Amino acid sequence: MSDYQLDDELRDALREVTNVAMGRAADLLARLLDTYVVLPIPVVNLLERSELNMALSSLRSVSSVSAVCQGFVGSRISGEALLIFNDTSFADIAELTSYSGDVTPEIELELLMDIANILIGACLKGLAEQLDLTFSQGQPVLLGQHVNIEDLVRNSSSGWQRALTVEIPYRLEGHSVDCDLLLLFTEDSINVLENKIHYLME
C-alpha cells in the first residue's frame, strides 16, 4: 500500500461525497450560532505524517491553535477526525453562543468540545449515509490548547505514518472564527473506501 497513488477519479468522487457531508454539518453549526458558514471546496490528499502541518491551509500562519481528536471505525474503514481551531476564534464563538462571562481555558475547552461534537458527528454521519455504512465513534480527546501546529501533530498519539486526508476549512462570515476539520483515513482503509465510492458513483 505504501506505493499507492491517489487517482483523480477517487479524489474527485471523495470531494463530492464530502461536500454533501460537510454541508450538513455547516447547516447545523449555522443554525446553532445563527450565522452564515463559508464553505470552500474540501481538499483531498494522500499525506505523510510529516506533511500534515503543511496541509492546514487556513491555519498555516497561525501561531497558536487548540484541537480535539476523535477516532472512528466501521465496515473495515478506520481513521480519526481532527478539529483544529485558531485560538483567536474563542471570543467570537463565546459571543455567538451568548456566553457573557470570562472566556477561561475551561470555557474554551467546553466550546471546542461542543463544536467538535456537531461538526465531526454530522460530517461522519453524512459520509456514512452516502456510503451505506455505519461509523462507531470513540470519545473525543483533547490534543492541546494554545499550542503550535508542529507540536499538535507531534503530540497526536495515533501511529499512522501515511493517510488519505480530507481537509475541510470552516469560516464564519463576519467573525474571526476559523477552524479546520481534518478526516484522516488509514492506508488500510483506502481500498475499501475506493470500492464504496465507485459503487456509489455507478
Rank of each mutant, 00 (worst) to 15 (best):
G159I: 12
G121R: 05
Q130N: 09
Y170V: 01
E150D: 13
Q130H: 03
Q130L: 09
R162G: 00
L142P: 07
R162T: 03
M113L: 13
E129V: 10
E129A: 11
L112G: 02
N148E: 09
G138R: 15
E150Q: 12
G159P: 10
G121A: 07
N117R: 06
G138Y: 13
D151I: 01
S157H: 13
L109I: 00
Y170I: 01
T165F: 10
A116L: 06
G159A: 14
P140F: 02
L111A: 02
S156V: 04
G101A: 03
M113R: 08
I120V: 15
L124S: 01
P140I: 04
I107K: 08
L111I: 12
T134P: 02
M113E: 07
P105N: 05
Q139I: 15
E167A: 14
M113F: 09
V153E: 10
D132R: 12
G126E: 09
I118Q: 02
R154N: 11
V103S: 06
C123V: 08
E108H: 09
L133R: 06
E108S: 11
E150A: 12
E167P: 01
P105E: 04
W160T: 11
E110C: 06
N148C: 07
E106M: 04
S158R: 14
G138F: 13
R162S: 02
L124W: 07
V103R: 08
Q137S: 12
T104C: 05
D114H: 06
R154E: 15
F135N: 04
T165D: 08
R154S: 12
G126Y: 07
V103Y: 10
N155E: 09
R154I: 12
E167K: 11
M113N: 06
S100G: 00
I115M: 12
G126R: 07
A116E: 12
R162E: 05
D132C: 04
K125L: 04
L124G: 02
G159D: 15
Y99P: 09
D114G: 02
L143C: 13
L111S: 01
S136A: 15
A116V: 05
L142A: 08
S156H: 05
C123D: 06
M113V: 07
Q161I: 09
Y99F: 15
D102G: 00
L131S: 14
V141I: 15
I115C: 07
L112V: 04
D102P: 00
Q161K: 14
S136I: 14
W160Q: 12
H146M: 03
T104F: 02
W160C: 10
L133E: 01
H146E: 11
I107F: 02
L143Q: 14
P169L: 01
S157C: 06
D114S: 07
Q130Y: 01
I120W: 05
Q145G: 08
L111T: 00
